[in-house]
């Protein structure tokens, strides 16, 4: 069939998870300026670091529940809510049909880096929505520490390890991470994430080896002694946020505070995280938008969404609905939109899909527009494009429109709050 303008037809098989890692290592763009390129994969699935891939992915219901808590936390932080209000949200219970066959990777992304001397490889989730990096450290056993697949990092075995002392600038630099002096004048930290997970331990310094040619001497990170939450499949987290404790902040002198990443569409393909590259004018092929910041949540990378189109038709949503800004977050799975924008997107998408009579499927957690594509060889969707200030437009492919067979968007807090 000839595709109507504004529509895209994809093979239904493209929604199925691949069982083998089909991608060779990605060829990340080589740009002038120093650049360390790390292989980036889905947290679970055939391309995940071999040591972790066999771990069972959390259920979709758990993933969406954790995602809802994270999104609510981010929204409250940007709105300047106090710390106590930030926590304690109760995500709506999600009932999920069991007959799913779709790609249910947990849609979080990891890189592998080595810590210490000699280096111990650690699988770390990349997170533009937080700053402090951490790994679990020996001695560390359940229940204080979750059962990670890779060897635990043992500071006592690393010749380049040092605990950060109390009172020094590094400890003071933790600021919002509840740094405090613990035993033997070491600098303790606590990080509480929006999905309810947490890590606490001793703030530390060691060599982080990113690639065979790039290492960060004296990298500051959390040596976690007690963690709780959905950490299956990772050994820790690599914070890429805007504040100083993040990897980006700590390597600004080397990589200029510029970085890029590509998140693979399927667990059977790979992407990359690249530190450095020329700052200034974006290379060819990019559409760029201004980076903004939120005084109440300085960690986040914020841009200004200005419009959405479905099937090539702009939605009639007032620009004021987007006035609150848009956080660019690798750790949030589903895009959240202000209610008026989401309602308009959902209505336009549903009416475009109606002409194809795909059977409806029950809502899935926060995703309320779902279809059952079983039995269809090909699926036709209206294109969805997000436009940002300065005209940068993200025209989404099918894998950016649907997830779990559902429209992969949800409503967030108040319009333009």
């Amino acid at each position: 069939a000839v595709e109507a303008p504004g529509y895209v037809t994809v093979s239904a098989a493209s929604f199925k998870p691949g069982s083998t890692c089909s991608a060779p290592d990605p060829v990340a763009p080589q740009r002038n300026g120093t650049s360390a390129v790390l292989r980036l994969t889905h947290r679970h699935g055939p391309c995940a670091p071999s040591r972790t891939s066999s771990l069972a992915a959390p259920s979709v219901a758990d993933t969406l529940r954790a995602d809802q808590r994270r999104a609510e936390y981010i929204l409250r932080r940007v709105s300047g809510a106090g710390a106590q209000q930030l926590l304690g949200s109760k995500a709506a219970a999600a009932t999920v049909p069991a007959n799913w066959g779709y790609d249910i990777g947990t849609l979080n992304y990891v890189v592998t880096a080595s810590l210490g001397t000699p280096g111990v490889a650690q699988t770390l989730e990349v997170d533009t929505g937080s700053d402090l990096s951490w790994v679990q450290c020996k001695p560390c056993s359940a229940p204080a520490c979750y059962n990670q697949k890779d060897p635990l990092f043992d500071p006592a075995q690393s010749s380049s390890y040092a605990a950060v002392p109390c009172g020094g600038s590094a400890c003071a630099g933790l600021g919002m991470y509840e740094s405090s002096c613990v035993s033997s004048a070491q600098c303790g930290y606590v990080v509480r994430y929006g999905d309810g997970s947490s890590t606490t331990g001793v703030y530390s310094s060691d060599t982080l080896t990113l690639t065979s040619t790039d290492a960060v001497q004296g990298f500051l990170f959390g040596c976690g002694r007690a963690q709780s939450g959905l950490f299956t499949g990772i050994d820790g987290l690599l914070g890429l946020g805007r504040l100083q404790p993040s990897l980006v902040g700590q390597t600004a002198g080397t990589y200029g505070g510029a970085f890029s990443y590509c998140l693979p569409t399927k667990p059977s393909t790979t992407g990359y995280l690249a530190l450095g590259g020329a700052s200034g004018a974006a290379p060819a092929g990019f559409s760029t938008t201004q980076l903004l910041s939120s005084p109440s949540a300085p960690t986040y990378y914020i841009v200004m969404l200005t419009g959405i189109s479905v099937g090539g038709q702009p939605l009639s949503v007032p620009a004021s609905a987007f006035a609150g800004g848009t956080v660019v977050d690798t750790g949030t799975v589903v895009t959240r939109l202000p209610p008026a924008a989401y309602a308009a997107l959902r209505s336009a998408f549903r009416s475009s899909m109606a002409s194809y009579s795909y059977p409806a499927a029950p809502p899935t957690g926060i995703l309320d527009t779902c279809y059952n594509f079983a039995g269809y060889g090909a699926v036709t969707l209206p294109t969805v494009a997000l436009t940002f200030s300065s005209g940068a437009t993200l025209t989404l492919g099918a894998d950016g429109i649907l997830s779990f067979g559902c429209l992969a968007f949800a409503a967030s807090g108040s319009d333009g709050g």
Binding site: P26, P29, D67, L75, V78, S79, L107, N108, Y109, T128, G256, G257, A258, F259, S260, Y261, C262, L263, P264, T265, T270, G271, G277, S279, G280, A282, P283, F286, S287, T288, T289, Q290, L291, Y301, L305, F322, G324, G325, T326, V327, V328, D329, T330, G331, T332, V333, V334, T335, R336, L337, A341, L386, A392, L394, T395, L396, G397, D399, G400, A408
Partner: peptide
Amino acid sequence: MAILGNVQQRSFEVRIDGASVGFKPNSC
């Protein structure tokens, strides 16, 4: 307030420097 989630970022190279965020399609 909106959050651009990772489902919508997939396959784009997202480039962040001190002043801007750039998106390049079909990058991985």
